[in-house]
Every structure is written in C-alpha cells, then in structure tokens.
C-alpha cells in the first residue's frame, strides 16, 4: 500500500524506479541504497542504552525485593548519610549540564571550548566517583560489607554497577578528549561525543532512580 502511494506521487522518478519494475512492485531492493557513514549509530546506541536500562531494572527489582532483609544488621537509617548523597547528586547534575555546554560549543566548531567543558565534566565525574568510594569505604569500615546482609548485597550491586558505568564513561571521556585534541572536531569525533552525551545523561537518569529508591525511600521508611 505504501509503495502504491509513493508510485502515485510520481514526482520523484528516481525514487520510483528504485522500487518498481514497470508496474510490478519490487519487494527486494535491487541494491542496498547508499547510507552515509555512521547514519545509524545514534539509533543503535540508543537501543544499547535501552538494553542497559533493562539491566538496571533487574538490579532495581532485586534491590526492591531484598530491601528489608537486614539479617539483623544495620538498615538504611543507620547507614546512609543524606548530605553526602545530596552532594553526589549535585556533582552528577553539574556534570550533565557541563556536558550539555560542551555539545553546544561543539556544534559551533569550537575545539578548545569543547575540550574545556569536557574536562570540567570529567572532573565532576571524578568528584562523584571519589565521594562514592568514600561512602563505600566508610560503610565497609563500619562492618556494613556486601556480605553482611541481602540488603547490603543488593545495595552494593546496584550502586556499584552505576558507579562502574560512571567510571567507564569517564575513561571514555578522556579517550575522546585525546581524540579531539589530536584530530579535531571531525564528523567521526562529533558522532562519538554525541554517543557519550547520551550515555552520560542516561547515567544521570539512572541516578535519579538510585537516590530516590535506595537512599530517600530507605531513610523515609
């Protein structure tokens, strides 16, 4: 039906010829149309992010189920320091907006400004990771290790997986900064920066889930 519609348009003969053999519609393209380099990268990367989302859904579900299984050990109210979590949240939110700024200057072709904003984003990412490591180290020093209870196993797995994502994102960021510094804002690098942009903002979205479900609801209950 679609093909008939296109045929009746008739204005674009090139287009029509490619899909019709006389009046007979072609159900297979005679040859693969030319696609510009990397034209499907963004959609492909988006689908990867959605699959990553399912991974986090699994970890969130595990946490939701084991949330109250303290095994006689400490619970969220005794363990979590909300001011520290608020600071961490701020770091990630700042890194999101500075990454946005780097994308804006990238569009205007400003290489050095892009590198500067990416660098600031990386520093906020490192600050987030340092605070998280500090928090984990404090918990483990108090004896609240992943082995202590099902609640803590689920907590360290969920928050740790997010932290691992941020770590990999930061390594990726440094890699792209080196690439941009050496090769400039070539189309391939712009595409890579846009993928990392999606990844970085996605991690901030996952963090909204983490601070709400794990920290705030844990302490509120």
């Amino acid at each position: 039906m679609m093909a008939t519609q296109s045929h009746s348009h008739g204005s674009d003969t090139m287009n029509t010829q490619a899909y019709f053999d006389g009046d007979r519609p072609l159900f297979h393209l005679p040859k693969e149309p030319h696609h510009p380099d990397g034209h499907s990268t963004m959609l492909g990367f988006w689908i990867y992010l959605m699959s990553d989302c399912l991974l986090f859904a699994g970890l969130f579900a595990t946490f939701a189920v084991l949330e109250h299984s303290y095994a006689g050990g400490p619970g969220p109210k005794e363990l979590f320091e909300l001011p520290l979590v608020a600071l961490n949240t701020a770091m990630l939110l700042f890194s999101s907006i500075t990454y946005g700024f780097s994308m804006l200057v990238m569009e205007r072709g400003k290489k050095n400004a892009t590198l500067m904003w990416l660098g600031i984003t990386g520093l906020f990412g490192l600050a987030f990771l340092s605070i998280e490591m500090h928090e984990f180290a404090g918990l483990i020093a108090e004896g609240a290790t992943p082995q202590s209870s099902a609640f803590l196993s689920a907590f360290f797995t969920l928050v740790g997986t997010h932290g691992l994502h941020v770590t990999l994102g930061t390594i990726w960021l440094v890699t792209l900064m080196v690439q941009v510094a050496q090769k400039g804002l070539i189309p391939a690098n712009r595409r890579r920066l846009m993928c990392l942009s999606m990844f970085w903002h996605f991690l901030d979205i996952v963090w909204i889930g983490v601070f709400t479900f794990v920290y705030l609801m844990g302490v509120a209950q």
Binding site: M2, A3, S6, D12, N15
Partner: peptide, 9 residues
C-alpha cells in the same frame, strides 16, 4: 516498503 515512504519524506 515503508522505507519508500520514509525516503520520499
């Protein structure tokens, strides 16, 4: 076939 419509658009 929906590809045709997309390309056209």
């Amino acid at each position: 076939m929906s590809d045709t419509a997309t390309n056209h658009h």
